[in-house]
Amino acid sequence: MKGYNFAYLDEQTKRMIRRCLLKAVAIPGHQVPFGSREMPLPYGWGTGGIQVTASILGRNDVLKVIDQGADDTTNAVSIRRFFGRTAGVQTTTATAEATVIQTRHRIPEKTLREDQIIVYQVPQPEPLFRLEPSRQETRRMHALSDYGLMHVKLYEDISRFGQISISYDYPVMVNERYLMSPSPIPAFDNPKMDMMPALQLFGAGREKRIYAIPPWTRVKSLDFDDHPFRAINAPHPCGLCGATDSYLDEVVTDDRGGRLFVCSDTDHCAERRAAGHVGNDGFKEAAE
């Protein structure tokens, strides 16, 4: 793209972001403030993730961009196009081929490797924000490891609903020190973060925070000994490929209660179907 640096940001900005990333990796789960820039996409639509990706992308990288687990959602398409125009890197929909994966609200089903980096788009980096809106106060709580407020909230859930009622953006303890928001991934995905071989980077553009989980780090979802963490997923197999262990989207097929459940991770589903797996609604796909 004429008149723009590789991957849009100027080199000084990229260096600033990389310094923040290094600090974040050195202190797993700790939120590092950074001088987030206005980007051509709106705040709340992935500017943090985009800035992180722009700062780590090299000419030989292969980039995958997903939103809700799918490569073809409008926002994923928009961001992939953005990097196509500004960096000219090779892009892919295959998780296995990617070196950098930028994601909104899902972790791919396929276990990631040590040579891969996953960049999460984060709307709200502060895990305590619903309980304590003041950032000044939450900074102190993180510094003093004072997370009583969050435990109280979990206690309240159990006393009110009989179970912890958080289903996404489920808070985790990273490296047994920092309370962290994993971004609004479904709780189902939380276990993937624990001891993940890949580097996990988190960018919040509007809130201006970066954080990270280095490879092979302990990540534990908050719970009680007698109310252990449980992942939530629709109790069906994928209608297209039959998978029973992937996170499912619910598609409303008619206004009489008709439903179809399909893998949210489109690459995972396509790979399974290519290998011959068929779900009970597999015939529907052929009809389109």
Partner: peptide, 14 residues
């Protein structure tokens, strides 16, 4: 009442 216990590391709801 339970908050101080949880702040000290109590993790068994019951």
């Amino acid at each position: 009442v339970g908050e101080r216990l949880m702040a000290q590391g109590a993790r068994h709801y019951g």
